[in-house]
Write a protein that binds this DNA or RNA. Structure first.
Lengths: 200, 200
DNA sequence: GAGGTAACTTACTTACACGTAAGTAGGAAG
DNA sequence: CTTCCTACTTACGTGTAAGTAAGTTACCTC
């Protein structure tokens, strides 16, 4: 149980790696067990051994992705104390994913939402709500401290941030222009940073 | 040739209607000739008669969608003279699509970009570039006339507008919250409207 | 009324893709 | 030494999707 379960976890992790990349690039409906198996030099049946069906695999994918994202947010909180620095770091996560030629896994799944098994739909929702919640806190705190200036509530602005980043990623990727994301980040940040504007 | 070609065009239009809705809701990879045929009470072969293959159908879909969008922009130009009014009207187009439970056809296709036939990828690119070009003109003109105030160039801001609307649509749809799009539109417009802020 | 053509249907092929059942190698455990 | 478990593979079964070929019907034209 000790060593073999480690091996199992390792293979499972390799499967998740391949599947995550494939789904982020081609979408959940545009990827198959066969694609991932081929990449790993395994059979489709081996994938079914680790993830009984596509819905299970999809759920595991979102869970792991969400956990990694949550870890990244914790790391940002530990590293940066100022709200705008946190937001910049948050935006940088998106830039890094785009530079790998990928879409945000959950952004991709959001597009395919209607065709996903309910368990995956729920997991995608949870991912976005968790991100929005973190952003909202950062924005509220930044407002209190006067480094951030909002046009709506922290909740609404948090959604605006996610929407802008996801949309910019979507367009930047399909037009092969990383600058489309970069420039939207710059404008978004300029719109939030206190001192770059004064409300009348 | 006269009547029969009209009938043909009518059936072709019905096919495009059904396919457009299906693709906007389920994605290009999540829809099939069978789905559309079933809805229309036809056979799959009948669809192949009008659109030889899926790539042809997809291209026709984007072309018609792009033409309709272009017409809407012309109508906006005819109806509204002020830049902010044009932008509000532009945003309203997105709201209307979302209220039908659909994603923007090209936003959906942008997500699936990597799996699309090249002819469709090109058509999607053209759609966005055409939109961006119109927005950029509106923003430039609004800036000249002083009703709009930008944080970047008209070109960059035009991309920001599209990115925000597409992303907000994506998230609003997957979370079943139209307010997510509405609130992002409000904040986006407030950020562009002169008089709601003064740059320092 | 004969022939042609537009707009289909029927019936088929080919190709995947999901999922499963059954078997097997190799190591751990008693 | 044998028994059992993990981590696979091989081999199916079933469903579905794209695409095509050949036939059918109704209308239109000469």
């Amino acid at each position: 149980m000790t060593k073999s379960s480690v091996q199992s976890d390792e293979t499972a992790a390799l499967i998740l790696n391949a599947a995550e990349r494939l789904v982020a690039v081609r979408g959940f409906n545009g990827f198959s067990y066969g694609d991932a198996a081929k990449e790993l030099g395994l059979t489709r049946a081996a994938l079914h051994y680790h993830f009984a069906n596509k819905a299970d695999l999809g759920e595991a994918l979102i869970t792991r992705y969400g956990d990694r994202f949550a870890d990244a947010l914790v790391a940002i909180d530990a590293r940066e104390s100022e709200a705008m620095a946190k937001l910049e770091a948050y935006a940088k996560l998106y830039l890094e994913v785009l530079r790998e030629g990928r879409m945000c896994l959950c952004g991709m799944l959001a597009a395919e939402n209607e065709t996903l098994p309910p368990s995956m739909q729920d997991a995608v929702s949870r991912f976005f709500i968790s991100n929005q919640s973190w952003l909202s806190s950062v924005l509220a705190r930044g407002t209190e401290l006067g480094t951030v200036e909002l046009r709506g509530s922290p909740d609404e602005t948090a959604w605006l941030v996610i929407n802008t980043l996801e949309g910019a990623m979507l367009l930047a990727r399909s037009l092969h222009e990383v600058a489309i994301l970069q420039s939207s980040i710059d404008q978004l940040m300029a719109g939030l940073r206190r001192g770059t504007r004064v409300d009348v």
